[in-house]
């Protein structure tokens, strides 16, 4: 199984509509906005559309102080309720599970968090941007990325900093980060073991449907 031109095309199509993060520290609310928009388009569900600033409020985003990422159900489910969706996240996600989430029509695209080692390694993988450490390194910043495709040997994903520094129209297909699964694994496994977040139809909704309430 290889990453096909079709996969790349899907990546390009989705990513071209992705919003650029307004600030270098707003990766999380912006990534959420992007997976929500992609889902809203796919499901034709306008109630899933929120502005980056609405999502930032829900995540207690403060400029240059990033956002919180605990109690995610309490923070986000009230926004998703009306559309019948809810947020899910867990650690220990397997690669086949991640692939299932990516391919499932009933789930949003997932978000993953990378270990700061990513910033040390990325210079060898792309010259689209250069992370430089401060006096205390990268402060173990957890970078949020959106994976699009996994196969036996590589992972294709969206790194929002590339879009932050470049107009996406000027990025050719190399703009899609396509890295060996071994490297991806190293970044994704620390400090929390393979944490991912995605949206699913809410259980309530599923139950209501099952009991014919709707």
């Amino acid at each position: 199984m290889t990453i096909t031109n079709e996969d790349r095309e899907r990546y390009q199509t989705a990513v071209t509509d992705f919003h650029t993060q307004p600030e270098p520290d707003s990766c999380f609310p912006t990534a959420l906005k992007n997976i929500l928009d992609e889902l809203a388009d796919r499901k034709d569900e306008p109630n899933l559309r929120y502005s980056i600033s609405d999502l930032g409020d829900a995540l207690d985003y403060v400029e240059n102080r990033a956002s919180a990422s605990d109690r995610l159900a309490a923070r986000l489910d009230p926004l998703l309720e009306e559309a019948g969706w809810e947020v899910n996240h867990m650690t220990g996600v397997g690669y086949d599970q991640l692939q299932t989430i990516i391919e499932s029509d009933d789930r949003s695209l997932p978000l993953c968090e990378f270990h700061q080692q990513y910033f040390e390694d990325i210079g060898q993988l792309t010259d689209n941007y250069t992370p430089e450490p401060g006096l205390d390194g990268f402060g173990r910043w957890k970078h949020v990325i959106v994976p699009f495709k996994i196969n036996d040997s590589t992972v294709l994903y969206f790194d929002p900093y590339i879009q932050f520094f470049h107009d996406l129209d000027t990025i050719d297909e190399d703009g899609a980060m396509n890295v060996p699964i071994k490297s991806f694994n190293e970044w994704w496994t620390r400090p929390e073991k393979r944490w991912a977040l995605w949206l699913e139809p809410s259980k309530q909704q599923t139950l209501s449907a099952a009991f014919g309430d709707e």
């Binding site: 403060v62 990033a66 919180a68 990422s69 605990d70 173990r140 400090p191 929390e192």
Partner: peptide, 13 residues
């Protein structure tokens, strides 16, 4: 530290 980052912001270390 991960717990602290989740509640306080991903920049806190």
């Amino acid at each position: 530290e991960t717990r602290l980052k989740r509640h306080l912001g991903r920049g806190v270390y």
